[in-house]
Design a binder for these strands. Structure first.
Lengths: 233, 233
DNA sequence: CTCCTATTTATGTATGCACATAATAGCCAA
DNA sequence: TTGGCTATTATGTGCATACATAAATAGGAG
């Protein structure tokens, strides 16, 4: 008899998910601990641990030392969004990418930017605006603020040949940030730049990044009409 | 001397990320294999493997058996989006959640839905519309199609006490799906339901899920003005 | 009864080893 | 040259073991 076939962590993960969905383990309920599951499945605890770690990453269970593992009360779905550099996103669709720098100046930030970046209102930041194009058509309008004291090199960078978007990704590591999606009616200026009607519904992303507690940059991208962000679950 | 302190996989992950960002390992370049790194860091290959697996999950490196590990050409950022059930999202903000079923009927799906769900145009699906409210204010308009042959139980479900959103999350497991975000100008009907002006810019999510190759449901959520989706990087 | 401490316990991680698997590279034959 | 077989090699995974760490609990001092 082939007594050798080991249990894979994937099969344990699947069985755990099955039990949760079949309500054998109900939301909020404590599930058996790793050692017991290892015995039940006839494998090492390491393997159970690996499986449960994956399930925990997906948000279906919550684990705490000593307290044990319980089924999450509210099954929160988690989706991974891929956020490529705009140039790559456009070129992947087989279109020609272009970027035009529209303005560049050291300016005092408006209150909204101050709040988001935690910056002093009397301290000038580098303010850039530009247009990303795909096959010559307007794709997205970029409005960016850069903390020059945190990124001195940005003052020298030439943003006419490389977009600030890409320059920052290539040159400035960051430890975290946040990202917001929303919808917004095109202003007069946005409509002109994106060649659409004023008031048209546009997709907007706002992102800011920080490093070592310092805010680095804050950017708002207003996309041309019809833009969609897509992801798999 | 304390010769005991082991190297943690986190510290290896951080060092790997540092080298990538410092351009010691350039995009597209092959990095040393696990055994070498294990020797360099003075730890077990398992530990290096764990670290590299994490980095690979974040999208910074690509790994293939036998071929080795290389730094990703285009540093694609990955963000994890949390997609809670609407009720939970609203209640977490301390607001009172409500749902009103607006319509329920077995209908022939329009071409768009047929395409997304891979459903036959002559096969009726369960079509539901309803309004999610927060503190009595319109929050999102739901327009859902359910494949009743894949989910027979949906035909009996009472969607006036529990929203289809939540009923499906609780009762129907799925293996995958996709999710799209976009902006959309409010139609007459949407404006009436959401109590906003027609043409106003609204945030829209479209989601469809499948299981075992069969499409289960397709839903379109149109949010009231001002809605934002937020995530951390 | 309250507060603090020590113990217990479940998860988290590191290690050495073995073997599985995918994919390249090299070889040989037609 | 071409086709296909084989050996090689880097990653992927499983296991037994050991110890680390967080956190709940029990026990003891006041």
């Amino acid at each position: 008899m082939t007594e050798s076939s080991a249990i894979s962590w994937q099969s344990i993960r699947d069985e755990v998910l099955r039990r949760i969905r079949a309500r054998e383990w109900r939301p909020g309920q404590l599930i058996p601990h790793e050692a017991d599951l290892a015995t039940e499945f006839g494998c090492a605890r390491t393997t159970v641990n690996r499986a449960l770690r994956e399930v925990a990453d997906s948000g279906m269970i919550e684990r705490r030392r000593r307290a044990g593992t319980r089924v999450a009360l509210h099954p929160v779905r988690r989706a991974t969004l891929e956020i490529p550099v705009l140039r790559v996103e456009i070129e992947r669709r087989g279109q020609a990418y272009g970027f035009t720098l529209l303005s560049r100046a050291a300016e005092l930030p408006p209150p909204g930017i101050c709040a988001r970046m935690g910056s002093a209102p009397d301290r000038p930041l580098l303010h850039l605006t530009g247009l990303h194009t795909a096959d010559g058509q307007p794709h997205a309008l970029e409005d960016r603020w850069i903390a020059t004291d945190a990124i001195p090199a940005a003052a020298q960078a030439d943003f006419t040949t490389i977009s600030p978007n890409e320059w920052l990704v290539l040159n400035v590591p960051f430890e975290g940030g946040d990202l917001t999606f929303s919808a917004h009616a095109a202003s007069e200026g946005e409509a002109r730049a994106l060649r659409c009607a004023p008031g048209e519904a546009l997709f907007v992303t706002e992102r800011s990044t920080f490093q070592a507690g310092r805010s680095l940059t804050s950017v708002r991208l207003v996309f041309a009409p019809g833009h969609r962000v897509h992801t798999r679950l």
